[in-house]
Every structure is written in C-alpha cells, then in structure tokens.
Amino acid sequence: MRVSFLGTVFHRLAILAYLLFALFPLFWLVKVSVTPNDLLYSEGIRLWPSRTSFEHFRFVLENSAFPLFFRNSLIVATSTAVIVTVLASLAGYAFSRFAFRGRAWLVALMLLTQMFPLVMLVAPIFKMLTPLGLTNSLTGLVIVYTAFNVPFATFLMQSFFDGIPKELEEAAKIDGATQFMAFRQIILPLTLPGIAATLGFVFTAAWSELLFALMLISGNAAATFPVGLLSFVSKFSVDFGQMMAAGVLALIPACLFFLLIQRYLVQGLTAGAVKG
C-alpha cells in the first residue's frame, strides 16, 4: 500500500521518540556510573560528564560485597534455570505427546498457579523453610524459584514440542529406535533452541526476583544481588556512583540472556500468555 511522505516521516519520528523513552533510563544509569565523584553533583543533570572514569566500578568490584552477591545470584539463577528446564522438558513433553487421564486437571492446576498472588506465600514458605534450615540458604531460594517457574516453563517447552511433527518420532521408531533413543537423538536436538529460550526466561526471572529473597535471606553471606543492592541503598549514605555501577553490573547477565531469548519472545509470551 502507498504511504504518503508525511506519514513516513511521522512514523520514523514516532519510533525515534519511543526509542528515546526506552533507552534513556538505561543510558542515564550508565552515565552516572562513569561520572567521577567530584562531578556527580556539579554536573548532575548534564547529558554526559566532562570527564569519565571507572572508579566506581573499581571500588564496587574491589571493596564491596557485590562480587559475593553477584556470585550468589549467578549460582541461584543458573541452578534454577537448569533444574526448571529439565523438569519442564519432561512435563512439557508429556503434555505435548500423551493424552492421559487427568491431563486437563494438571493443565488447569498449572494455570491456576500463575493466577494467584505469590506474595501470599511469603509468610507460609518462610515458616515451612525455617525448621528445614533452608532460610538464609541458596538451596532454599533455588527450590522456591524452581517451583515458581516450572509451570510457565512447562507451557513454553510444550509449545516447542508441539512444533516438532509426531511423524519424526514415528519414523525414528520404525527406523529401529527405542522411545528414549528417539527422544535423545531426534527430539532433543530439534528442541535445543527451545531449551535455550527456556533457560533464558527462567534465568532472567530468578535473577530479578526480589520479595522472596528479601524475606528468606538475612545477612550478606547468602544475599543475592537485589537484596544486596537494596540493603546498600538503605544502609549507607547514598553513594549514587557506586550504586549505579553495581546496577550496571546487575544488568549485564540479564541483557546477555535477553539477546539469547529475543528471537523466542513472541513464542514464549503466547505460549504462557500469563506471565511477565
């Protein structure tokens, strides 16, 4: 269809405007993190400081507990992502390939877990985990995050399995493969992109989780990045440069995984259509 020149100009301008809106806060985060302390207040609202430095990053990496928080978050998010992906692959495969008694109920149950406010579980889960020694522990966080993320990941994996024709498995069986061999040699390699996407989604979710980490973790030893950053905000006289440098560090893994899953966003969102 033909579009007028004016319409095209308007279209490009609108896109530019939205790009600015989307990227400016991130730009600002980076800008403050590289502004030296002596310019922080005098050039507070300049778009770019007259001099940049990485002193905040150096300080955060060398003299703070952030490397520990970073490590804790990495352990929790990676373990959660791996375990969830394994469990969700199994369950998603069952939902995709088998018609079995109770299937509709299980799907409904999983959908239900996506609807009720998770915040109402904060208190009971704390009470349950305390006698087990799972508060203040990364293991406890991994267990909780895994359960929270399994339903969505299952729907996501199911949608990827649904995309693989059943005939491929049948052909493999006729070629002489057992069910397990067909799964490992035919289905799994074809699902690799889906597995990568699921890993990415779950990693990002576990990396970002705040409320349960706040409730279940006290003290630095098992603090994840969000908990550490937030206690940093309330504890010390505000050192914006350092906080924002820490913020940029927290952004890096999330952005890396975003690049990984970017192509599958649409599929992921329409599969679950329930979770942000």
Binding site: P165, E167, E170
Partner: peptide
C-alpha cells in the same frame, strides 16, 4: 512387537526427514 522390532520401513506423507 514395537515398530522397531517389526523390520518394516515406512514412507510418510510429510516425509518425516530428520531436519538436523
């Protein structure tokens, strides 16, 4: 017997070639 133990070959409508 499982399909794998029947010693038969099959050609599918969708061909079912292994894409990888």
């Amino acid at each position: 017997r499982h399909p794998k133990d029947r010693d038969i070959a099959m050609v599918f409508q969708s061909y079912a070639l292994y894409p990888h």
